[in-house]
Amino acid sequence: MRKFIAALLLLVPATMFSGAQEKPDDEALKIAGVMDGIPVVDMIHLAAEYEKLSFLFNSKTVTGEFTLVAPRDGITVPRDRMFATLQDVLAQYRFCAVNHGGTWVIVPMVEVCTYAPIVTEAELSALDESAWVTVMAPLENADANAVTGALRNLTSRQGGVIQPVQGANTVLICDRCDRVREIMKLVRQADESARLSTRRHALPAGADADKYAQSVFELMPTQFSRSCMVTAAPGGNALLVTGVEAIHSEIPLAIEALK
């Protein structure tokens, strides 16, 4: 704690909290060695001062101390990383800062999805990585329940939420922006791998297309059968099959086996 205060006194102008002067823009905070017992509220001060933000919080609940360990030679925390550092510190106590009507309020992480701004996928790239956001991800191919089940374990333990929107094949994701970006990559991969295509598969001459359609569907492996549709092509000796790409290589084999 003493070391941290000493570092502040050395590197932050004495006028920091007095408001008499504004700091030069290129100034950054240098930390070195082990600094333990730093009050969380000091970090809030730094974020407010360096990033020109206002914070409102309940001082009875937002309490605690943290430890910073840096190389002996010291490292520099740029002024535009101060807010992200504060978010990391608050996360240690399951709190986070969210912009609520122009003021940054510090709230428990379990409630952050009730404050986080709702943004589009396109807006994600422009946002601060430490900000909490909610994104709506409409799915074209994959099932929203399946995607939710697969990704549920990847969200933050407190505050992170992924839920399907029934009837709209959409998932809602709330987490820190950097985490949401990573999760969205998986969502898009899952959606792409479930992309369906429709192809026509020829049948042997004189085959009963309806019977073939029924039999081919029953022969499909279970992992394909939920998203697979097989029907007889009208007016032709062929099957129309809609399914993921991998299924189209299985259909000729099934037709051959049924000959």
Binding site: F17, E22, H45, F55, L56, F57, N58, G101, G102, V105
Partner: peptide, 26 residues
């Protein structure tokens, strides 16, 4: 409540003041 702002000060009036109070009450 604790309020921490930059030393350069932020000013609030009208709806911004109501918002501050609403946030404090929340």
């Amino acid at each position: 409540l604790a309020h921490i702002a930059p030393s350069t000060a932020v000013a609030a009036e009208g709806d911004a003041l109501f918002m501050l109070l609403q946030n404090a009450l929340a």
